[in-house]
Simulated assay, not measured.
Amino acid sequence: DWAQARELDDDTLQARLHPAPVARSARHLEPDWSELHQQLKRPGVTLQLLWEEYQLAHGGRAYKYSAFCEKYAAFARSLKRSMRQVHKAGERLFVDYAGQTVELVDMFSGEVTRAQIFVAVLGASNLTYACATRTQQAEDWVRSIIAALQFIGGVPRLLVPDQPRALMVRPDRYEPTAHRLLAELGEHYGVAILPARPAHPKDKAKVEVGVQVVERWILARLRGRRFINLAELNRA
């Protein structure tokens, strides 16, 4: 009553009359989202069923169904979906072209062209080969792959290129059709062609890293030099 209230100090009175608000999230009990995620993989298990079990166990401290679904969706989006690739020695050779190019300046006309940089990387050892070519046409791809095999001193079981139009007559995620020159190269060396899926850089992550190494360790150091032909550039 007021008589007792007068005997209380001001801070205690304010705390009793105006208690601190309780955060909304503090009233709810968080489910084990990782366990729920695993349960959803079992046949017949749905998010509705899991929410009903969760609500039955926790009553008033359970989230409403809509909030439960939203929070699970946020958890599922946060999961990193990837599969680790295990590379056996000599199994795969990954090939690609770098995004960077190098200027070639004609010593007579002064015309400037851009040399393309081919990169090949072995899956297990990360042994890397790079060379410059005039274009990224099929002939340059095939010559560069042959040069990479000579540099390595052997032939892998699988050759993993991207799916550029120069190499694939019919690019496709599941059954791409290789250019005649690439198919003949595979037959000649006895190597199977296994193109990476379009828009899946992790299929050829090895050569993606190899391209970065070539750009940072080689091209960056050559940025101040001028070259008049491919032979000079490749020697450098």
Rank of each mutant, 00 (worst) to 15 (best):
Q137W: 08
H188K: 14
G224I: 13
S144V: 08
A23Q: 05
A178V: 09
A124G: 02
E103H: 15
Y174K: 13
A236R: 09
A73M: 14
V112E: 07
A147L: 11
R235L: 12
L49R: 13
R216Q: 12
R134S: 11
D32N: 08
R134L: 13
A23K: 10
V142R: 01
T135F: 01
Y65H: 10
Q38K: 13
L222K: 13
Q150D: 15
V112L: 07
A132V: 04
E103F: 12
V142I: 09
L127E: 13
Q163C: 02
F68S: 03
L17N: 09
E175I: 13
P201E: 06
I146Y: 13
R114D: 06
K202Q: 14
W51Y: 02
A20Y: 11
A196R: 00
E184D: 14
A183T: 11
E215T: 09
Q116G: 06
S144T: 07
F118E: 01
A196P: 02
A147M: 09
L185V: 04
E187A: 12
L185Y: 02
F118P: 00
V191L: 02
T101M: 07
N126C: 12
L17T: 10
V214D: 04
A178F: 05
T113M: 10
L167W: 03
T113H: 07
P171E: 03
V121L: 00
L159Y: 01
L185P: 00
R92K: 10
K88Q: 15
K41Q: 15
D172V: 12
H28Q: 07
H28M: 08
A124M: 03
L194H: 14
S109G: 05
H179L: 07
T133I: 00
L167R: 06
A196D: 01
R157N: 06
L56A: 15
L8W: 05
A67P: 05
K80N: 13
V214A: 07
G99R: 04
G123S: 04
G99Y: 03
T46Y: 02
A98K: 01
V169C: 04
A5H: 11
G99D: 00
R6D: 06
T177F: 05
R180S: 12
L219F: 10
E7T: 09
A120E: 01
I152A: 09
K202H: 08
V95L: 04
L230H: 03
Q137L: 11
V112Y: 02
A15I: 06
A73Y: 14
H37L: 09
D162A: 01
I228K: 13
P21T: 02
C69Q: 11
V102H: 00
G186F: 09
T101H: 04
R223C: 12
G153E: 09
Q39L: 12
Y189Q: 08
G154R: 10
I117Y: 02
R170N: 15
Y97Q: 02
H28L: 11
E91W: 06
P171K: 02
F94A: 01
V209L: 06
K204F: 01
A196Q: 00
E208Q: 04
V121G: 00
L233V: 09
Q163T: 01
G44Q: 01
